Computed example of a mutant assay.
Amino acid sequence: MSAIADEQIPNLRRGFRFQWEPAQQAHVLLYPEGMIKLNEAAALILELVDGERHVAAIVDTLRTRFDNVPGIREDILEFLEVAHGNHWLEFR
């Protein structure tokens, strides 16, 4: 069971920027001390993190896109927990 609630709203922490990096041929998170190269699944989640959508809306959007993926909700929540634990995201 996740500690993240459906009504929480994730946002990138101050100083972090999500973008496509042509040199890496991948989406990345840029921050003052460096860069984090993201896999496709992480990028799909983070592109929906806009400081306005709550967790349930992010899950619903991805569940609609990938309706045959078992356990997608749990995977999304796990990623959000890891991103929060790594101080990439804040929740309100």
Score class of each variant (00 low, 15 high):
residue 87 H to S: 15
residue 15 G to A: 13
residue 28 V to N: 09
residue 20 W to C: 07
residue 10 P to I: 01
residue 91 F to D: 07
residue 5 A to I: 08
residue 82 V to T: 12
residue 56 A to D: 07
residue 26 A to N: 08
residue 14 R to Y: 08
residue 39 N to C: 11
residue 5 A to H: 14
residue 27 H to E: 09
residue 27 H to G: 06
residue 79 F to C: 01
residue 20 W to P: 02
residue 77 L to F: 01
residue 41 A to Q: 11
residue 72 I to P: 00
residue 19 Q to K: 14
residue 66 F to D: 04
residue 31 Y to M: 08
residue 12 L to R: 09
residue 28 V to A: 06
residue 38 L to S: 04
residue 22 P to A: 14
residue 63 R to I: 02
residue 89 L to M: 11
residue 72 I to H: 01
residue 89 L to Q: 06
residue 7 E to G: 06
residue 63 R to M: 11
residue 39 N to W: 09
residue 77 L to A: 03
residue 50 D to F: 02
residue 30 L to F: 07
residue 32 P to G: 12
residue 76 I to K: 03
residue 92 R to I: 00
residue 90 E to C: 04
residue 75 D to G: 08
residue 89 L to R: 05
residue 43 A to N: 07
residue 49 V to S: 07
residue 56 A to C: 04
residue 6 D to Y: 04
residue 24 Q to E: 15
residue 74 E to M: 05
residue 31 Y to W: 12
residue 78 E to T: 13
residue 2 S to E: 05
residue 87 H to K: 14
residue 76 I to Y: 02
residue 9 I to L: 06
residue 67 D to W: 06
residue 89 L to K: 02
residue 37 K to C: 09
residue 50 D to Y: 04
residue 32 P to I: 11
residue 47 E to D: 13
residue 66 F to L: 15
residue 58 I to A: 05
residue 92 R to E: 10
residue 45 I to A: 01
residue 74 E to G: 02
residue 62 L to V: 03
residue 17 R to S: 13
residue 83 A to K: 10
residue 39 N to Y: 07
residue 72 I to R: 04
residue 3 A to N: 12
residue 6 D to K: 02
residue 73 R to K: 15
residue 91 F to K: 04
residue 24 Q to K: 14
residue 73 R to C: 00
residue 50 D to Q: 06
residue 61 T to N: 06
residue 47 E to I: 11
residue 22 P to S: 15
residue 71 G to H: 03
residue 46 L to S: 08
residue 76 I to F: 00
residue 38 L to D: 08
residue 84 H to I: 03
